[in-house]
Amino acid sequence: MNEERLRRAYAAAVESGAAAPAGEHVTPEAIAGLARREGSEAERLATLDHVMSCHECRAEFDLLRSIEEARTQLEGAKGGGRRTWLVPVALAATLLIAVGVSRMLVRPGDDLTRGGETSALTLLQPGAQAVAGDSLTFVWSPAPGARKYALEVLDAGGSVVLMAEVPDTVATPSVSAGLPPGEYKWWVRATTSDARTVRSAMRPLRLTPR
């Protein structure tokens, strides 16, 4: 057995229905949620497990994912255009404040890089502390060639509590206002037009009670 034969055998099993677990197909809404990266990781894993073992659901997933990716690419290209003049202006002011604040509040040892690769992407805002209950605006520096950015906020236990995918270098996820006081970490991953990923370091964020 080698990997090529293994793939062929698996493809045959999926095609014949032998790989799919007994029971119902997952719902089209669950497949759409998977393609959009919505829902908890456990839910998406369960959906993905079925989708990748079921010939029919996989075709539906690929169709929905094609639509998602088309949007990301088109909005990313549009966002890239805007970034050339808008974001530097917006960031200039933020940069001056945020770099100063971060130098005061973030110790060098606080940053942890998540998952290797380069850290050419710098997190700018919020600083190390913010008030729980407010909507948070996350700002980072642009990565060369980036077509989209994924923001993740993790709680003290390392679970992802907030995730957002945006074409720009600013995100104000409304759900951030629902985060309770506590210790968090956040980071950003950029995907470039040639499918490379650029990751920021991980920055701590303390949400204090109002």
């Binding site: 493809a11 990266r37 998952g115 994924a150 990923t197």
Partner: peptide
């Protein structure tokens, strides 16, 4: 399953929001 179905590792990471590691 995704890997055997022919999706590259980067795409698995992107879909699940996982790091490359």
């Amino acid at each position: 399953r995704m890997y055997l179905a022919g999706y590259p590792r980067e795409e698995i990471a992107e879909l699940m929001g996982w790091t490359e590691g």
